[in-house]
């Protein structure tokens, strides 16, 4: 049988989270930090979708292959998929606002390094 599908998906998602975390901690460039955030975001989306998978079941769309009657016994959990849409929208929104702030920071400091923002340190 090999590895279960949800384990592969979970491992991929968490790996993306780790790469994003590494990128955020290591780099000083604001754009790279934002890219790291996006990677964490995407990884978590994959993790969320992976938790909805049920062994051997198919997509929750009724068609020729999946009758109305056996939807409950043969379809995967649709709730994580519906929740992830919300998460994607919020992630997109946060990324857009962060990029806008990055542009303002560049205008003010003429630099994209977070070392230029020492006065906002605690």
């Amino acid at each position: 049988m090999g590895l279960p599908v949800s384990h592969i998906l979970l491992a991929t998602g968490f790996l993306l989270v780790l790469i994003g975390m590494w990128g955020m901690l290591k780099h000083r460039n604001i754009l790279r930090i934002i890219i790291g955030f996006s990677l964490i975001d995407t990884g978590l989306h994959i993790v969320m979708v992976a938790t909805g998978y049920v062994t051997g079941h198919t997509a929750p769309i009724i068609d020729k292959a999946l009758g109305i009657g056996d939807a409950t016994s043969r379809a995967v959990d649709p709730i994580p998929a519906a929740l992830v849409v919300t998460a994607i929208v919020i992630g997109f929104s946060v990324t857009a606002v962060m990029l806008a702030f990055a542009i303002r920071v560049y205008d003010a400091k003429k630099s994209l390094s977070i070392d230029a923002l020492t006065e906002s340190k605690w």
Binding site: T51, H57, I62, T72
Partner: peptide, 25 residues
Amino acid sequence: ERQSVSALAEHYLSVVPQELGAPNV
């Protein structure tokens, strides 16, 4: 890995196609 869907998901999977008439749950 999960072997069956939760009770809420089961409800959605039966109600959405039958009462709302939408194939995509």
